[in-house]
Amino acid sequence: MNADIVVNVTNLNKSFGDNHVLRGIDLQVQRGEVVCIIGPSGSGKSTLLRCVNMLETPTAGTVVVLGRDLTDIDCDLDEARTHIGMVFQQFNLFPHMTALENVCVAQRKVLKRSAAEAKEIAHGLLARVGLVEKDNAYPAQLSGGQQQRIAIARALAMKPDVMLFDEATSALDPELVGEVLQVMQSLAHEGMTMLVVTHEMGFAKSVADRVVFMDGGVIVEQGPPSQVISAPVEERTRSFLSSVLNH
């Protein structure tokens, strides 16, 4: 098996009752690769992402991350998730903790790092997302863009091998989207493996190594952005792109 495949999804199916959301997805992500998943709402792209760290349990198929089969009943999901960072559309910062505590809590409780070490790592990450002076602020005191950058720092504190972004900028006011995309872009440039569900075509075009277009629970088309976004082959991709790019 190729050690450089970080995420390997095979024949993934997911149903919610009668609603068959994912219909046989196969997807590999290489170490250091940035893969953007685009597609209309309801196409299953968020569900796919949530299956990669098992926030949703697949109905069928396998999800192998870093050589661990997460769908295997013997797999320690809590341990596996420490290697998979996730950033949510609604940020989901812990509102009863300061920015610093948000970044420290899992380091302390899950990785059992010392308070001093956790703090040092947290300060480094807060500096990296440009919010070192906000370490004592509570989430309610921060803008959406600041909250999302803290959430990215919180995920990075676990030193994950892969980062999942679930529409990380969709809940933001338009003027705050840029600061979050900038952090994501710098992460990509530093070689982080990223799986990004997004509506930001500009970001996908300039940062992604590969773009995956999903519709109706299947992967319709994938390839480098120059192909999928600039010169799509499939009719469904073309009509989706023309509706998002020309509004």
Binding site: N53, D78, E79, R81, T82, I84, Q90, N92, K109, L111
Partner: peptide, 21 residues
């Protein structure tokens, strides 16, 4: 909100740990 449990679990916390913390 449901997202709080999801964020905690995504960081590797067990159900019990997420509940308590």
């Amino acid at each position: 909100p449901k997202g709080q449990m999801e964020a905690a679990r995504s960081l590797g916390m067990s159900y019990a740990r997420a509940m308590i913390t």
